[in-house]
C-alpha cells in the first residue's frame, strides 16, 4: 500500500519533468527533501537527493536528445533507501538504493522515449480528427503519468520486500559524497569554467576551503 501511494506521488511529481509546468519540483534535491520529509529524515533526503543531483547535473535535454532521467533517479534512490532501511542495514540499503537510482535513471530515459512514441499515436489521431486537439494534447499527461507509475511501482514494491543478502557490498554516506562531489566538480568545471571565469573559480575554491576548514 505504501509502495503504491509513493509511486503515485512520484508519478505526479515527475510530470514536472516535461509534461506540466517545469517548475523544478522534480529535481532530485527537491524530491529528496519531499520524500525525506515523508519518512521523517529531511536532512538525509536532501543529502542523498543532492548527491544524485550532482551526478546528473550535466544532463541537458537539448532538441531531440533525451538523456538519462536524473529526476526519476532522484525519486527512486531516496524513496528506495527509506523503504529498504526499514528491514536492512544502512550500508546495504544505501548501496541497493544507489544502484536502483542510477539504473532507474537509465531505464527512465528509455521509458521516456516509449512515452513519446505513444504520443505519436495521439498526434496521428489529432491529424485525422482536428476537433480532438485538446483531448489528444491533454492525454499526454496520462502518458507521462503512466511512465512514472510503470517505473516507480515495481522498484518500490521490490524495495519494500527485498532483504539484502549479507554478502552484498555496503556503502556509506561518505561514499555517496565522494561520487557526488567528483561528478559535481567534473560537471560544473565542464559547464562553467572558461578562461574568463577562471578567476571566479579560484575565488569560490578559496571560500569553499575556508568554509570546510573553519
Amino acid at each position: 500500500m505504501h509502495a503504491i501511494l509513493l509511486s503515485l506521488l512520484g508519478a505526479v511529481i515527475i510530470l514536472d519533468k516535461y509534461a506540466l509546468g517545469e517548475f523544478g519540483i522534480s529535481q532530485p534535491i527537491i524530491t529528496g527533501a519531499i520524500f525525506g520529509a515523508i519518512f521523517g529524515d529531511v536532512w538525509f533526503g536532501i543529502f542523498l537527493g543532492g548527491m544524485i543531483q550532482l551526478v546528473f547535473l550535466g544532463g541537458l535535454p537539448i532538441g531531440r536528445d533525451i538523456p538519462p532521467d536524473g529526476q526519476a533517479a532522484g525519486i527512486i534512490a531516496v524513496t528506495s533507501y527509506f523503504l529498504l532501511r526499514g528491514h536492512n542495514t544502512l550500508g546495504h540499503s544505501l548501496f541497493v538504493a544507489a544502484v536502483l537510482g542510477l539504473a532507474g535513471g537509465i531505464t527512465g530515459g528509455v521509458l521516456e522515449i516509449y512515452a513519446r512514441r505513444f504520443n505519436e499515436k495521439l498526434y496521428a489521431r489529432f491529424i485525422d480528427h482536428e476537433e480532438s486537439l485538446y483531448i489528444c494534447h491533454t492525454a499526454g499527461l496520462l502518458t507521462a503519468f503512466g511512465r512514472g507509475v510503470c517505473l516507480f511501482l515495481p522498484i518500490f514494491i521490490f524495495s519494500t520486500l527485498f532483504t539484502v543478502p549479507g554478502v552484498f557490498p555496503q556503502v556509506t554516506g561518505q561514499t555517496m559524497a565522494i561520487i557526488g562531489i567528483s561528478l559535481g566538480l567534473a560537471n560544473s568545471f565542464y559547464l562553467f569554467v572558461k578562461m574568463k571565469t577562471f578567476v571566479y573559480l579560484l575565488i569560490g575554491g578559496i571560500c569553499g576551503l575556508a568554509l570546510a576548514v573553519f
Partner: peptide, 10 residues
C-alpha cells in the same frame, strides 16, 4: 564558476 569552487566546502 564560484559555486564550482565552493563545492570544495562539501
Amino acid at each position: 564558476a564560484v559555486l564550482s569552487g565552493l563545492l570544495f566546502s562539501l
